[in-house]
Amino acid sequence: MNLARVSKLIFWAAMVFAFVMAILPQPPELPGQPNDKVQHMVAFAMLAALDAWAYARSDLWRLFVGLSFFGAFIEFVQAIPAIHRDSDLKDWIADTVAAALVLVIVRLWRWRRREEQPAP
């Protein structure tokens, strides 16, 4: 299995894990007990980094939109009463901001790498 496939597998496994944790009625407590917004931001920062790695040739704007929609989808599912979770617009905003920050950093890093490469 090549690195491109492995990176995609890791990204999609992380997406499934994030979704499952988001819809569990009683998710496990994390060490240090970070608040809900911190958990959202860490999860979506990691997803954005993995997404940019797995889909390195994709437009970062598309990755951002996909992650933002994923965050909105989680909040939509959490609004289903049978899930026994609370949906919060602020959680989606935290997801979107975290993804945006990481993808901006990735964009700057890519730009700098191109600038540093010698001209042919």
Rank of each mutant, 00 (worst) to 15 (best):
M1V: 11
N2T: 10
R5L: 15
R5Q: 15
R5P: 02
V6H: 10
S7W: 12
S7N: 13
S7R: 14
L9C: 11
L9M: 13
L9G: 15
A14W: 03
A14T: 07
M15C: 15
F17T: 12
F17A: 15
A18L: 04
V20P: 05
V20A: 11
V20G: 05
M21E: 13
A22Q: 01
A22M: 05
A22P: 01
L24T: 08
L24I: 03
P25K: 08
P25D: 05
P25T: 06
Q26H: 15
P28T: 03
L30M: 10
L30P: 00
P31W: 12
Q33N: 14
P34K: 08
N35P: 11
K37E: 01
V38H: 00
V38N: 00
Q39M: 13
Q39E: 13
H40D: 01
M41W: 04
V42S: 05
V42C: 02
F44A: 01
A45W: 05
A48W: 00
L50E: 07
A52R: 02
A52H: 05
W53M: 02
A54I: 02
A54D: 06
A54N: 06
A56G: 09
S58R: 13
D59C: 12
D59F: 11
D59V: 08
L60R: 07
R62C: 15
R62A: 13
L63Y: 07
V65D: 10
G66H: 10
G66T: 07
G66D: 07
L67Y: 05
S68Y: 12
F70W: 04
F70T: 01
G71I: 00
G71L: 06
G71T: 04
F73N: 03
F73Q: 03
I74H: 07
E75C: 10
E75D: 06
E75I: 08
F76W: 15
V77T: 11
A79S: 15
P81L: 10
I83S: 01
I83M: 06
R85T: 06
R85V: 04
D86L: 13
D86G: 14
K90L: 15
D91C: 08
W92Q: 09
W92G: 05
I93N: 03
A94P: 02
D95F: 02
D95T: 00
D95M: 02
A98K: 03
A99Q: 04
A99I: 01
A100E: 04
A100F: 11
V102Q: 00
V102W: 01
L103G: 06
L103C: 03
L103Y: 03
R107Q: 10
R107K: 10
L108M: 10
R110P: 02
R110Y: 10
W111M: 11
R114S: 14
R114L: 14
E115D: 12
E115C: 13
E115N: 12
E115Y: 09
Q117H: 09
P118V: 12
A119F: 14
A119I: 12
